[in-house]
Design a protein around this nucleic acid. Structure first.
Lengths: 203, 203
DNA sequence: GCTTGCGCTAACTAAATGGTCAACTATCAC
DNA sequence: GTGATAGTTGACCATTTAGTTAGCGCAAGC
């Protein structure tokens, strides 16, 4: 019954693309519609407004892109020592590839948008916080595993996860701001250092 | 000759306030004029547009607020070991005070704006990068002093400064996004740990 | 093959935005 | 005082923005 379409998906993809390349505030509904090749009437047929689209897009990206990235590169399947190191390198590689594609360092859209809208835009911020909390839980779980494996000193795993989060996303944000991918070069070493993992791959 | 006024200063102060509380993109020229109690005609008498006002405001804030903060809390006058620790604590205290005043964690406006406008708004980004570069130079100089004093292992001081920068501003950004000042609680310890300063105040 | 209803569209409105301008005013130097 | 000049103002314009609506078209189910 009724016709079918992928306009909703196109809108979400266009929104993430544009917001990542520019910022949440700089992107208008008209911009998103143009990029997605969707008329404004259709936009409002699917979403009440930009905020709701952003929330849907962020949740979609988590499911289809970011969660798989963690599951692959921070996989429980890998040796606890290698795990973080490989994740760091995958992160740097991913940012490098994006930078080559777009001609500028893009950083992490969740963090950029989060910092931009945290003091207003309650609903968008909710979606951002949910994703960041999940990301942090991946870190904490991996840290617990490393401690259990005896390659990390026992510690407050929650606090360690917060610290790692700060360092990683701090460096990524810095790379975006300075448009300098070189800032991420030493992320793997610095990350391992912060975790103080006793392993041959650490240094 | 001619009448005098502090409208220009009021505009810059209003711009920083609003951008800090919201974001660069969310604040309009009308908003800034209202807050500064200045008519739009006067705005354009002093500035060609929002970007130029932002640049002027950032440069002004560096001179009157941020540089003095570094000169006081990261002072060469202090013992190299204490120096960073006191700076970290002053930073946390400053964010805590702001959070109490405004009812929400505000973070660092330079980093927030930088991440927001880095891929567009070339001129604003230039001002942001200049401030961040100065901030980084304060870090690097203090690290060099610590190495010279023998309380830090010899290292690539530039890289260490970048890492510290990442951690500090990463945690500050996280605190803003999550609106949780608690994230900054352990910043002093984590910072000292990253620097690996051998000193009684370190732990 | 026709009905049902999901999806689509162009044209529209109202409000807000950035930006301009000619006329006005306060102040200082003389 | 008075003239030169820095600063001020409100009214105005063009454009862009978010958001609406009446009606059209396409595809599945019967």
């Amino acid at each position: 019954m009724g016709r079918t379409s992928d306009a909703k998906e196109r809108l979400m993809a266009a929104a993430i693309e544009l917001i990542w390349q520019e910022s949440y505030g700089a992107v208008t509904i008209n911009d998103i519609c143009k990029r997605a090749d969707v008329r404004k009437g259709s936009f409002y047929y699917f979403f009440p407004g930009k905020a709701e689209l952003a929330v849907a897009a962020i949740e979609e990206m988590w499911k289809t892109e970011w969660k798989p990235f963690f599951d692959e590169h921070l996989s429980v399947d890998k040796e606890p020592g290698q795990r973080f190191h490989e994740y760091f390198e995958a992160l740097v590689a991913s940012q490098t590839r994006l930078a080559l594609e777009h001609g500028k360092v893009l950083g992490c859209p969740v963090c950029s948008v989060g910092s931009e809208v945290s003091t207003s835009q309650v609903d968008v911020c909710g979606a951002v916080r949910a994703v960041l909390a999940k990301k942090r839980r991946y870190y904490e779980s991996a840290i617990r595993d490393a401690v259990a494996a005896g390659i990390m000193e026992p510690c407050d795993t929650g606090e360690r996860a917060t610290a790692l989060f700060g360092l990683v996303d701090g460096l990524v944000a810095q790379a975006r701001i300075m448009n300098d991918i070189g800032i991420l070069k030493r992320l793997p070493q610095l990350g391992m250092e912060l975790l103080q993992i006793k392993s041959p791959v650490a240094l």
